[in-house]
């Protein structure tokens, strides 16, 4: 999903060739770049945008699932879902911190999310009308996120790579709890199995879109690969995801909603049908079912929390003044 963060990124730089070559030599030697190291402005801008979008995706990603916390079918499912949504909040915070090391403030990033200037992953603009959607999100959406995030653990920028290591450790629980939900529904009554298949039908294609446009249409892929911000191309990661998930669907008796999907003996991969990129761009540009709701929910959370933030600051000031007076 996070390669979508590169859409529209301006990776142009104005540094001297000598400076850029020296930087590239460090990258090629697999040295990690730390926040205070010299770096091309394009490298910094690309990372601010990518990490910022990744952080926003984690935070907005709490909403579609938060929708089901009060209606989870059992206590076991409910505590797992609460823990998962809390993890997503934590992941957002690790990532905001990583972006802040590049000189962008938390306030600025929040402002950009709430104003619609900054994007988040297109996947979170789809609704979650049934319980099976929670299973499909854990299995497919978190599964796609893991596929993206594992190579990001080796990203050339140290703080991003370190945040990703923490995130990946926690993400595996998300995918397993999601698949378990799907498995249980798929082995349940006809109505439950239908619900699981319906969720799969709705989430499959948007999950494939999370990897971003095809390599041939991806404007910034080459530079990001050269700087080792990304380690695999969008299409490579998408293929890995398809190859991993198709047998998982077969195992629980569900069918991917793609009549052209078939195993290719020669390539050793699954071939798939064409992705509706018009839909992808419509959702990215704000035309998805839930774009307006998501931003409205984030604005409300920000506004409703204002008094808490203000009270905390006033309390801290009062305690500091009292401490001085007592000394």
């Amino acid at each position: 999903m996070y390669s979508q963060g590169l859409i529209g990124a301006d990776s142009q730089t104005e540094e001297t060739q000598e400076f850029l070559d020296a930087f590239q030599a460090r990258i090629d030697a697999e040295e990690k770049i730390e926040p205070n190291d010299p770096m091309p402005e394009g490298y910094r801008r690309t990372l601010v945008r990518m990490i910022g979008q990744h952080a926003h995706s984690e935070i907005v990603g709490m909403l579609p699932e938060g929708n089901w916390i009060t209606r989870a079918p059992t206590l076991r499912r409910k505590i797992a879902l609460i823990a998962k949504v809390q993890d997503e909040g934590g992941h957002g915070l690790y990532l905001y911190s990583a972006a802040e090391t590049l000189g962008v403030s938390r306030e600025q990033m929040t402002e950009e999310l709430l104003s619609g200037k900054a994007k988040y992953s297109s996947i979170f603009n789809y609704p979650t009308p049934t319980w099976a959607d929670i299973g499909a999100i854990g299995w497919l959406v978190d599964g796609a996120a893991i596929m993206n995030q594992i190579p990001l653990c080796r990203c050339s920028f140290g703080p991003y790579a370190r945040a990703m290591i923490r995130v990946c450790k926690e993400e595996s629980f998300h995918q397993r709890q999601g698949y378990e939900i799907m498995m249980q529904l798929a082995h349940g009554s006809k109505a439950q199995k239908d619900m699981a298949q319906d969720a799969l039908n709705r989430w499959w294609w948007p999950s494939l879109m999370m990897f971003g446009p095809h390599d041939a249409d991806s404007e910034h892929g080459d530079q990001s690969m050269a700087w080792k911000i990304k380690r695999f191309t969008n299409d490579e990661l998408r293929q890995k995801f398809i190859d991993a998930t198709v047998p998982q669907a077969e195992f629980i008796g569900l069918t991917m909603p793609d009549p052209d999907l078939k195993w290719n003996e020669e390539s050793g991969h699954y071939d798939h049908g064409s992705i509706d990129w018009d839909e992808f761009w419509r959702v990215v540009k704000g035309g998805g079912r839930m774009n307006r709701d998501r931003i409205a929910a984030r604005r409300k959370a920000w506004d409703d929390g204002a008094w808490v933030r203000e009270a905390a600051v006033v309390h801290a000031e009062k305690q500091a003044t009292r401490k001085v007076a007592a000394e």
């Binding site: 809390q86 915070l93 690790y94 911190s97 938390r106 945040a163 933030r309 905390a312 801290a316 500091a320």
Partner: peptide
């Protein structure tokens, strides 16, 4: 890692949660 908080006791609570 790091986090934002108004004072030390809130920072410790948030650090526990994050």
């Amino acid at each position: 890692g790091s986090l934002h908080a108004a004072d030390a006791s809130l920072a410790i609570q948030s650090a526990r949660d994050v």
